[in-house]
């Protein structure tokens, strides 16, 4: 019997998710916020896989494909939006992006 159980995987997933949240809340650079969102997505992926292993069911692993597809879609559209905003405003600091406020 191994020492590491599912709880440790879930704890790791929770820690990584929290690091991602801190990144989204504290950073100002849009690209770094974007990468923090990727971190959070991967933390959720980790918990899905650990549940799939603990239940001995492949459905949890299949869900990961959809998460990956959504992450890829989010990456392409999000980065295109960042590029468009940079072309218009000349900055990607989220403090200066307040076009909807005006």
């Amino acid at each position: 019997m191994e020492f590491i159980t599912t709880e440790y995987y879930l704890l790791l997933s929770g820690i990584l998710f929290t690091i991602g949240i801190i990144g989204v809340l504290t950073r100002k650079n849009a690209i770094i916020i974007f990468m923090s969102i990727e971190l959070m997505l991967n933390a959720v992926n980790l918990s899905l896989i650990s549940f799939a292993s603990s239940m001995n069911d492949a459905a949890g692993q299949v869900l990961l494909f959809f998460v990956m597809a959504v992450a890829a879609a989010e990456a392409s559209v999000g980065l295109a939006i960042i590029l468009a905003v940079f072309r218009k405003k000349g900055t990607i600091s989220i403090d200066n992006i307040n076009m909807l406020k005006k």
Binding site: T5, S54, N56, A58, A59, Q61, V62, F65, F66
Partner: peptide, 24 residues
Amino acid sequence: LYDGQISSNIGTVQTLAKELYSNF
């Protein structure tokens, strides 16, 4: 919860493909 004993065949391409193209 998982106690360190995994059946190692749930992560193979065959199992995932069967699940993906039948239930999902």
